[in-house]
């Protein structure tokens, strides 16, 4: 079963599952350092990624540090 979420600003169809599953679906190693996730405007800490299940319409931000001034 799939649902539609907003992933990094794009409407995206994804498989139901946890945030951890989402990373794996997108080919991102969930153990990679420096990645952080917000769900609906709130930080989700790394240890909650396997527990947080996606809901229809979720706004998910997956971020990492880049160069900056």
């Amino acid at each position: 079963m799939s649902l539609t979420i907003n992933l990094n600003g794009e409407e995206t169809r994804v498989e139901q599952g946890s945030l951890q599953d989402l990373l794996q679906q997108r080919g991102i190693d969930p153990s990679a350092r420096r990645i952080a996730i917000a769900r609906n405007g709130a930080l989700v800490k790394r240890d909650s990624w396997p527990k947080e299940t996606l809901s229809e319409g979720d706004r998910i931000e997956i971020v990492r540090p880049l160069a900056g001034g």
Binding site: N8, G9, R26, E61, I62, V63, R64, P65, L66
Partner: peptide, 25 residues
């Protein structure tokens, strides 16, 4: 200083951060 930006989901781009581990962020 560093910024925080959305991960590019279409392809991995190199981040400078791993090369700056000797510095405070």
């Amino acid at each position: 200083t560093l910024s925080i930006r959305r991960l590019d989901l279409e392809g991995y781009a190199e981040s400078p951060v791993d090369l700056l581990e000797d510095y405070d962020f």
